[in-house]
Write a protein that binds this DNA or RNA. Structure first.
Length: 271
DNA sequence: ACGGCGCTTGTCGGACCATT
DNA sequence: AATGGTCCGACAAGCGCCGT
């Protein structure tokens, strides 16, 4: 297995978290993988064999080979059908709205082929270029040119949305929306509307995702002492509330997660 | 498009419980 | 004593709708 991340061009670094590639030979390719919401929007190009995404226990779809995966607020499962080779762009929560006119909320909880988001020919052309490129370095160049060009006719992000988002990130998802708005309570309705449109989920939901991610990082990196401690450090009211949120976003409870889950991928992604 | 009203729905603190 | 969990009421967030 070979997982690599790359830093974006400085003009894009406020919008793009990173580029990443994952390659797994068919003979090592693994069983079902649990994907946990992390607040980011990804654009991914499948360069290897198809990848399934389960829509229920025993039903699945094949993911589009050039797609955008919007905000998710519940766990889901994917499974390689053979050789895995993926190139992807990880956007910050607010990052992707700058490149498309589609409301981001329409992308939530599913994959959208890129030809639905960009002018059809340019999407096709982009996909082909990415496929033909000889290495990640070239792919990054291609995608950066594409994005930088799109940014020129941009719909830039709302200031209230950005402020709220910054506050959420800073407080690791613990600050209440009302507190963030403080004196500007008149903006509440507007914030709700714009946040959903530009980020894809409501402010509170993103806050919860961020808070859980904080806890998850603690669990994975520190090897964690006990769950109570992790809960308090991530500012959950107590361990019981932590478990409840954990289950909501991951589908399992913390102990199961630490115990028997194949955490290879999760660990990779939450450095 | 914005701000505001008010109803519905969701969240969280807190108390408490069963299992190990 | 630690852990994973339930339930409830108060309050926060979400949302349709309406006037500007």
């Amino acid at each position: 297995m070979n997982y690599q991340t790359f830093q974006p061009h400085s003009d894009l670094e406020s919008l793009v978290s990173c580029y990443w590639t994952l390659e797994i030979p068919a003979e090592y390719s693994s069983e079902r993988q649990r994907i946990i919401p992390d607040g980011c929007i990804e654009m991914a190009f499948i360069l290897g064999d198809d990848i399934k995404r389960y829509t229920s226990d025993d039903e699945f779809i094949l993911q589009p080979r050039a797609m955008v995966l919007g905000q998710t607020i519940e766990p889901f499962f994917i499974e390689p059908t053979g050789y895995v080779n993926t190139f992807a762009i990880r956007f910050y929560p607010y990052g992707f709205a700058n490149f498309v006119t589609t409301p981001i909320k329409d992308l939530a909880n599913k994959e959208t082929p890129i030809e639905f988001l960009f002018e059809k020919n340019s999407a096709k052309e982009l996909e082909q270029k990415i496929i033909d490129a000889k290495d990640s370095k070239q792919r990054i160049e291609i995608i950066e040119n594409f994005l930088l060009e799109k940014m020129n006719d941009k719909a830039t992000i709302d200031t209230i949305v950005k402020q709220t988002l910054d506050a959420l990130l800073l407080s690791k998802g613990t600050e209440s929306i009302t507190t963030i708005l403080k004196d500007d309570l008149s903006k509440r309705r507007q914030l709700e509307r714009n946040f959903k449109k530009q980020i894809g989920v409501s402010p509170k939901q993103l806050g919860k995702v961020i808070r859980l991610q904080t806890a998850l990082k603690l669990l994975l990196n520190k090897k964690s002492d006990n769950l109570t401690k992790v809960a308090y450090e991530s500012e959950y009211f107590d361990q019981a509330h932590f478990t409840k949120d954990f289950k909501e976003f991951t589908g399992i409870n913390p102990k199961e997660f630490l115990g028997n889950e194949n955490m290879a991928l999760s660990t990779l992604f939450y450095k």
